[in-house]
Design a protein around this nucleic acid. Sequence first.
DNA 1: GTGAAAGCGCTAACAT
DNA 2: ATGTTAGCGCTTTCAC
Lengths: 331, 331
Amino acid sequence: MRNKTPTLDDVAKLAGVSRITASRYFRQPEKLRSTTQAKVAKAIADLGFSPNLAASALAGQPSKMVLALVSALSNPLFASLVSAMQSKLAEHGLHLLIADTQYDPDQEFQLLLELLGRRPDGILLSTIFHSPKTHKLLLQSAIPVVEVWDYPDSGVAINSAVGFSNHEIGYIAAKHLCLGPNPKAVFCGANDERDEWRWRGFTQGCNELGAPPPQRYELPLLPDIAQGKTALKQLLANQHDFNAIFFTNDLPAIGAVQLANELGIQLPNQLRICGFGNTEFAAHLQPSLSSISVPIEQIGKQAVSELINMLNGKAPQMHKLPASLIQGQSS
Amino acid sequence: MRNKTPTLDDVAKLAGVSRITASRYFRQPEKLRSTTQAKVAKAIADLGFSPNLAASALAGQPSKMVLALVSALSNPLFASLVSAMQSKLAEHGLHLLIADTQYDPDQEFQLLLELLGRRPDGILLSTIFHSPKTHKLLLQSAIPVVEVWDYPDSGVAINSAVGFSNHEIGYIAAKHLCLGPNPKAVFCGANDERDEWRWRGFTQGCNELGAPPPQRYELPLLPDIAQGKTALKQLLANQHDFNAIFFTNDLPAIGAVQLANELGIQLPNQLRICGFGNTEFAAHLQPSLSSISVPIEQIGKQAVSELINMLNGKAPQMHKLPASLIQGQSS
DNA sequence: GTGAAAGCGCTAACAT
DNA sequence: ATGTTAGCGCTTTCAC
């Protein structure tokens, strides 16, 4: 028969000290005589004791848990983000509670409602687009929130935000694609708020270079490679006049490059293509894909730093991190 | 000034009932008169109350948390796995606590030690290779463990395992690559236990087809595209005689396909290449990459099902899920 | 440097 | 159908 999980009392008894002394071993070991420390340490090891963090939390300690809500865990870009956040959190002894909102604001709200019951010390939200209910819930919970990934071009954040500007991304793409002579650009993106900002940046960039207003082609919400082929095919079929395409995701951009290859369209001479995300793959395409790159790791780590600052009582700060063009052969 | 987080007592007071009645609203609402239910519901809404799960756990309820330890969160394959597990867990009201072991058994042990303090109801371990310390710790913790991803070809599991057989993967690859006339195969894999099993399956497959014993070329632990180019380059430089290569990961396989293209090596006539993982990318290469595919989503979901079965008292079961060859043009 | 008492927010067991 | 009592495992005073 297996014994039940040992408690601090068991440790104390075995070590011949009081419970509170055993407790202090973890939080203020310097207060214990070294001989006492040794006794307690031995008891802990003998019992295989690990303190019940739920009880600590109840007794007033911070929960040492951070909640991360992510739009799509399976998206490799978000996976990198989560990975970066996790490792930084681990350095500070914080545990990561994670959930996938599947791009659904209602689900985000529901998950949040549930997970708030864990009393996390802080919250990392991997997108900046929330329902008003979520916004309100978060504010009244009074838990520090860092919105990660996008930087809110609207300027409005719950507490703090760390990320890249969608507007800037569109802008950079336009400035790059419209450099050649007689530029006629197409914007291929989804119909969501995020790509709306990129679209605005894109049109602004085209404008500033004196290029004609860009066309817009709508992509599904969840990007994949095949969409890029379809998009290019349709654009060609519709006899649109264009010589540059910005895809708001590398996957469809890759598809477009491949279709261009198949059709014998010369990149970048006849057509310039640029993607977003700087997938490992992009550099290995033939021709290699130009892509707007975003410092994912840095965003993740800095978001955690910002959160920790807030936990230490500092005032929330906004951090806009720079995106940059990785020049490939496709543009 | 903000009020502190409301408790069940606050709810009870506001609703004019006792604390336990308010508590039952969550767990056994059917026991409450509907008028009482309404009163409590209103109080909860008015206060924005969400029950403190740490307190519930302390009072004897299951923690409703599941711990997942993953080798590398940033690896897209694991990201898909985690995503699948998370959504299945969510269906059952279980929250996911996650950590990244970075392929390091010592770190795995340390993380486990810490995270056991959360008293998770179950544990999902995304690899089957652990240090003996970890093994012991897990056994004495008496928390149900499902090892996910690989199926232990050794037959030994902590409690239960859900995954594909590495041996089978090597075997399938060999059977496929050695089908042509006069096969001379190379195995490109890392120097770890996982690829050791694949190697054994691979040699067995070659054997059974009467092919000569395969050569082995060692790849770094963390795969990338460039490694495949290097590998093929070196194999060619060393004037080894071979006409088929199995890469234990799609990334280097992709690199090899690309180098073959550059060098004008005809795939699959002069050289047959097969990878592992069936990355989205594989199908879109030119020529498309053959790859051993593994049902990642299914593994994740079934692992969670198995865990839930164990939580319900069922005896642990082993589940070996089939891998399959996705035929491309590269072999 | 160590300990005793009280309490964190909840629930199980036993009333009524 | 609802309430009372006791206690989960820890930490916070406040003593010594």
